[in-house]
Design a protein around this nucleic acid. Structure first.
Length: 260
DNA sequence: ATGCCGGGCGAAGCCCGA
């Protein structure tokens, strides 16, 4: 089962790209972020025509996440537990049956957190605390799971083109990375790093300053796997080529295969 | 790294992203 994650930066603006990529990549499950639209205007038909079931947790103009799956999407849950005041659409998960154990797949869009002296930074850290608590409860329930999405976290200096330039950014400061390590140290595996040890491989390149041709990127989209999912991990890679297409997202898909 | 690009909203120019 091939599971992919992609921050598309507006599903309406990116629909043609997403459909073209789906036809080539043929993922079984897709986690989308920054769809930037409400559930009612999400272009579900385009994906249903390709054989996908669709679950959406949308929001007008900002954020918004969705799941596409060729297998059934069961027990769909919208929103990250832990803060009833939080109305930003940044989390959806569902249980997906497979030939082996069912896998719970989450599509998450972790807050950016900049500027660091604004209320956005503590919101990011609190959101990460809630994600840690959610992962703990999934582990306690012994569900096999994949937490996929745009984490807005640069895990190490190997994951950024210029670590010094990003030293004080909310994606890379110590508090952010410490939360990410707390999450992964629960026993989760950064699937990409199982298959790729070499530094300076990215999932995001800014639209500005010629970041793509200069390969000034960041690795901020991640697939974190539970222990049982890690036991099934096959290949894992980034489809960087779509960044070179016309009208690209600034992020590219990351995917992994869970053996069956 | 300062939003220079790109999207939403809504019909110009501001908000937002990383």
């Amino acid at each position: 089962m091939k599971i992919a994650s992609w921050n598309v930066n507006s599903i309406k603006a990116r629909l043609a790209n997403v459909v073209d990529w789906l036809k080539q990549a043929e993922p079984d499950v897709v986690c989308l972020q920054e769809i930037k639209t409400v559930d009612e205007t999400f272009p579900s038909e385009a994906f249903e025509d390709l054989g996908y079931n669709v679950a959406v947790h949308g929001q007008k103009a900002y954020n918004g996440v969705a799941l596409l799956s060729k297998r059934p999407l069961e027990d769909v849950r919208r929103g990250l537990p832990g803060d009833r005041q939080d109305d930003q659409a940044r989390f959806i998960d569902a249980l997906i049956p497979t030939d082996r154990a069912p896998v719970r797949v989450a599509s998450l869009y972790l807050p950016n957190g900049n500027p660091r002296d604004s209320e956005k930074f503590p919101y990011k850290l609190k959101w990460m605390d809630r994600l840690i608590a959610h992962a703990k409860s999934l582990l306690e329930q012994e569900e096999e799971f994949v937490l996929a999405g745009d984490y807005n976290v640069i895990p190490t200096s190997d994951d950024v083109y210029d670590a010094k330039a990003w030293a004080d950014d909310a994606l890379f400061v110590y508090e952010t990375r410490a939360k990410f390590y707390t999450l992964s140290h629960l026993g989760l595996t950064d699937a990409f790093r199982v298959r790729h040890a070499e530094p300076h491989l990215y999932t995001f390149w800014d639209y500005q300053r010629g970041a793509w041709p200069k390969d000034h990127g960041l690795r901020i989209d991640h697939l974190l796997l539970s222990p049982q999912a890690t036991d099934r991990l096959g290949d894992c890679d980034v489809d960087a080529y779509v960044r070179g297409w016309q009208k690209p997202s600034d992020h590219v898909p990351i995917w992994c295969v869970l053996d069956e």
